[in-house]
């Protein structure tokens, strides 16, 4: 998708999208709550998205991401809390608010028996684009998706990556100020993923489009997003730039797993090592596992920590085979925040 993203803007644009007073933040959500029965799936989530910002919205399956996005996009009404889209109160004027956003659902939300052009024409109609601007926008969106040549083919005949691109194109027709991308790279190959990234970055560069990017693939979020919100159990666990989020993790994370023989050499178990590291001044030391006891240490000073590891190994006759060192990343941050991998699910 190395195409020029300059879109026709001169005529008949969706009225609400053009007449809004520019707000500092494109999206502000405050204290969102959604309950299903007695269970609060979303429990007081607040977040904001600045103009031209790409916000990563991270969390494992069941964390409340999709429900939050459903509320932010008007598919679900929140039980409590407020949503402002470019200054428009969602609850007070949902039609105006909706005209400002575009949504790319996680599913391929298209009609497979229709052609790409017919799909785009239908969604353009849903956004009430006039006849002339509709044709221009459809041609532009097809160009963005790199599918101009196959516009007349049924979507069912496309590859997974091509379908994903049409899925995104359908959300761009009314040129929203805020684009929600819900797991847009599920099931696509590396090349299509890169094309999608490239498109998102160009949309931001060309139009100042803000993006909420939902994913549980940490490397994608690290690569693409300016700021990140991590949710779990319906609550925001952490929020900030990648640098801000990773700073408390120090220089890295050390994991030391003991086999049964090694565990037997320690009279008080793996706690012996935990006490030693705590005394050494490492910020957080956690232990876990019965069969394979594992120690996790946030490393503040890597050379000093490695010297400490060497000393302890010699002192207790332990091997070094169970030691892993990790660079601080969002995966390790999530592990640090929740004690489990993000892909473990809720």
């Amino acid at each position: 998708m190395t195409t020029n993203l300059v879109a026709p803007r001169d005529v008949e644009t969706a009225p609400a999208a053009e007449t809004e007073i520019e707000a500092e933040d494109v999206l502000t959500a405050d204290g969102l709550v959604k309950k299903f029965g007695d269970r609060a799936v979303v429990d007081g989530v607040s977040l904001y998205v600045g103009k031209g910002e790409i916000l990563g919205f991270l969390g494992p399956n069941g964390a409340g991401k999709s429900t939050t996005i459903a509320m932010l996009t008007g598919a679900l009404a929140p039980d409590a809390g407020s949503i402002l889209v470019n200054g428009v109160e969602f609850a007070a004027d949902p039609m105006r608010a909706k005209a400002l956003i575009g949504v790319v659902p996680q599913e391929i939300a298209l009609y497979p028996s229709l052609t790409a052009r017919q799909n785009l024409a239908f969604f353009a109609g849903a956004y009430k684009l006039g006849r002339k601007v509709r044709e221009e926008r459809i041609n532009w969106a097809l160009e963005v998706a790199g599918l101009t040549d196959r516009a007349g083919d049924k979507v069912s005949s496309y590859s997974g990556g091509m379908q994903r691109r049409v899925n995104i194109a359908a959300a761009l027709l009314h040129q929203p100020q805020l684009l929600f991308l819900d797991e847009p790279t599920v099931g696509v190959d590396a090349q299509s993923r890169n094309q999608i990234f490239e498109t998102v970055l160009k949309l931001r560069a060309e139009f100042g489009m803000s993006v909420v990017y939902t994913s549980h693939y940490m490397p994608e979020v690290e690569q693409l997003c300016d700021r990140i919100v991590i949710v779990d159990g319906g609550r925001v666990l952490a929020e900030g730039t990648q640098q801000e989020l990773l700073e408390p993790l120090g220089e890295g994370l050390l994991e030391w797993s003991l086999n049964a023989v090694e565990a037997g050499l320690l009279k008080k178990g793996i706690e012996t090592l935990a006490v030693a590291f705590t005394a050494h001044g490492e910020t957080t030391v956690t232990t876990s596992g019965d069969n394979t006891p594992t120690l996790r240490v946030r490393v503040k000073d890597m050379p000093a920590t490695l010297r400490k590891v060497s000393d302890l190994a010699c002192e207790h006759g332990l091997g070094l085979g169970g030691i892993r060192l990790g660079r601080p990343d969002l995966e390790s941050l999530f592990l640090d925040l929740t004690g489990r991998q993000i892909r473990d699910g809720a």
Partner: peptide, 15 residues
């Protein structure tokens, strides 16, 4: 419902 087209249409300015 399954394909998410309703979800997408719910985000469009259409009652």
């Amino acid at each position: 419902r399954r394909e998410g087209t309703f979800r997408r249409l719910l985000s469009a300015p259409m009652p």
